Structure formats: structure tokens, C-alpha cells
Simulated assay, not measured.
Amino acid sequence: MVGHRPNPVVGHPLNKPFLLYGVLCFVVGMAMYVTGVLLVFPRYLLNLHALLDPVAEWLVWYSGVPIMIGIVLALFDLLYMLQHKKPDVPVRYIPVQRRRVTVALTAYNDEDSIAGAVEDFLAHPLVERVIVVSNNSRDATFARAEAAGALTFNEPAPGYGRCVHRCLSEAVRFDDTEFVVLCEGDSTFRAYDVEKLLAYAPHADIVNGSRIVEPLRQYLTQLTVFMYYGNLFVGKLLEAKYLGRGTITDVGTTYKLCRRDALVGLLPHLNPGVNLEFNAHFLDTALSRGLLLLECPITFHARIGLSKGGNINNWRGFTVGARMIYGLLSDWKRYA
């Protein structure tokens, strides 16, 4: 399989994501410290000194323990383990033989946007075909996608992960295109970015679109400031887990380009039972399988219609992010 290579430190007794653990320990310590300091308000305003003084003192005093553990773990990984973890291989360059892609769009109750999204991609000169997988939509999504010229499939099992897995499974059946572009049908992304994704294709197995470049994001989107920085934080945790293997700024994006042959080998290792955090699971699994991942800045636009995923509100975004972090730490065992 193109691009498959073992982790350079597999089997090494110190092959652990120390930087990942260190960052989380540091965050826990800082949260303890800030909580202890903020208790000053209920202590004085509500005269709860007897109850809260010991709690605040304990939090501030012992917050130093996880902070110091985090610093030590991070320095150990950065100053010592990085030289063992970073792959000693030349820069990849595999020329693109045929600049044509199969586009696979996920859709769930996207009747207002799906036709425009399909037509946008079909009009692009590098797009061979557009596949739409409707996740058992209750509106006219399926019919409008079909009328717009897409190859349409219905995935009756609910869940974003099942929809994406079905999208990729249907797309790899077409062996006349070397690449599969995964996206969604809510018009938050544009077909013209296919050119940029393909420009990075010679160097990677997966080119992950990044929404993190500020001038390329429309001012008002469903990605709030909290979600924006939360997504960046989780992306950096994934980067820390595979220290030296990639630069990751956007772990939640749904726009990515994949080599078809890499996907064929990756699909059996993906768990469609992972729901809204599936994109993090996808990237984590790809890196664990030795695939080469790059990021490419893409444009991001306001969606048409209401969000049904992790961007409904900040609380929903926080819970999805928390499940992503748990998945990264547990290797997604809760879905086994």
C-alpha cells in the first residue's frame, strides 16, 4: 500500500505520547489553580470561609503537582524522544498520474443545499463524479441530489461515522480515479479548493483541509470562537500524540483528499460506530497505520440550513471535543 510505513518507534519501550499526557496534566493543573483562585468570590461574597478556604488552599497548593508532571513529560518528549520518533525518511513525492477525483458528499436533511453543492463539484474540471450518501434524510435531500446529477445512496443506520464510512466505501469502488475527496453537502466548502488539495497530493496519503487560516474563513459561520480554538487545541493534542509525524491544526474538518489505495487499506480499521467525532478517529487511525498526513488551508463558508452535527452550539462542541480527547487517549476502545 502506498505510504504505509510502520511507526519508527513501534516496539520501543518508551513509545508513549508523553507530550500529549504532559499537555493534559498541565491543563488540569492550571484548571485547579484558576478554580482555587476564583473561589475568592463565593468565599467573601457569601461569607463561606469555613467551608471554602480549605478547598481553595488545597486546589492552589496541589495544582503544582500536575503542572510539574506535565512540564517534565513534555520536556522529556521534546528534548529526548523526538529524535527517536521523527521518521528519518526523504520528503515524499509521488507524481499524480491522472488529475481526476471522485467526490463523496455526506448529507442529512440538506435539501436546501445539496443540489448546489453537487452542481458546484460536478462543474469542476477535475471532478469525475459526485457521490452523495444520505443518512436516512427525512426531507428531499436524496431526490434533489439525484436530480442534480449525483450518484445517490441511502445509509439507513444513523450516525455521522456510518455515513462517512459508507461514502468512502462507495467511492473506492471506482478505480478510474486515483483520489477520493470527502466533503459534505451543506455548502460550507467549495469545489475550487480541490485544486489546492491536489497540489499537496504528491507528498501525502491524506490531505486534510484546514479551516484555521483566518482570512479564508467567512466572518460568520457555525464555527464559533470557542469551537475554533477548541478544535485547534484537540488538533495539537493529536499532533502531540504522533510527535514528529505531522502538523495538525484542524481535527474536525470534513473536507479532505485521500489516495484511493491508502483508503482501501484504511477502511477495515475504521469504526463506523464512532459518531460526531469520526473525523478525529479517521486522522488518528490513519496516523497509527503509518499513513502520511498533510494539511492544506481551505476556504470555509456559512452553511445553508441548520447544523445537525457538533456545531449546534458551544456546549455541543465541548462535548464532542471531550469525546475526541477521550478517544485519542483510549484509542477509541469505548466503540469496540
Rank of each mutant, 00 (worst) to 15 (best):
V234L: 11
R190F: 13
V264H: 00
L126D: 13
R166E: 09
V132C: 05
F226R: 03
G252K: 00
A336L: 15
N311S: 06
L45M: 12
H124C: 10
V65Y: 12
V9Q: 10
R289G: 07
Y108L: 06
N135E: 12
V132I: 08
M1T: 13
L198G: 01
I67S: 07
A286C: 04
Y192R: 15
N271P: 14
H203S: 10
R245F: 10
A336P: 03
L182Y: 05
L48V: 13
I212P: 00
R323S: 15
C296Q: 04
Y255S: 13
V127G: 08
F41T: 12
Q218S: 05
V133K: 08
L306C: 05
Y229E: 04
Y21F: 13
Y108G: 11
L328K: 02
L238Q: 01
L73Y: 05
F76T: 01
V164H: 04
Y44H: 15
V91P: 13
Q97H: 12
E111A: 06
T319L: 09
L19N: 03
I67W: 05
F300W: 04
P272I: 01
L79D: 14
V60W: 02
F233Q: 02
P202D: 05
K308N: 15
Q97V: 10
L294M: 07
G36E: 01
L270K: 02
P66H: 06
V172T: 04
Q83L: 13
S187G: 15
W58K: 15
F18A: 02
F282R: 05
H281S: 02
V55S: 05
H301P: 11
R162P: 13
Y33G: 06
D53L: 13
L39M: 08
M30N: 09
Y44D: 13
H84Q: 07
I304Q: 04
Y80K: 06
N154W: 03
A336H: 15
L38M: 04
T253I: 00
D186Y: 15
V2Y: 15
V65G: 03
L329P: 02
V28D: 12
F282N: 01
S137L: 02
V34W: 07
I304W: 00
H203F: 01
L79K: 08
F300D: 09
H281I: 07
N313E: 00
A262Y: 08
E214A: 08
T319K: 10
C163F: 12
P272W: 12
L51C: 12
M227N: 09
R5Y: 06
G149A: 10
P17N: 05
G317H: 01
S330D: 14
K236F: 14
H4P: 08
A147L: 13
L151S: 15
T224D: 03
L105S: 11
M68A: 13
I212E: 06
N311V: 14
F300Q: 11
E214H: 01
R166W: 06
P90E: 03
I206G: 04
A262W: 08
F174K: 13
G246T: 09
N313V: 08
Y80N: 14
V2Q: 13
M81D: 02
G116K: 14
R138S: 14
S113H: 00
G185E: 11
A171G: 04
V234T: 15
P215Y: 13
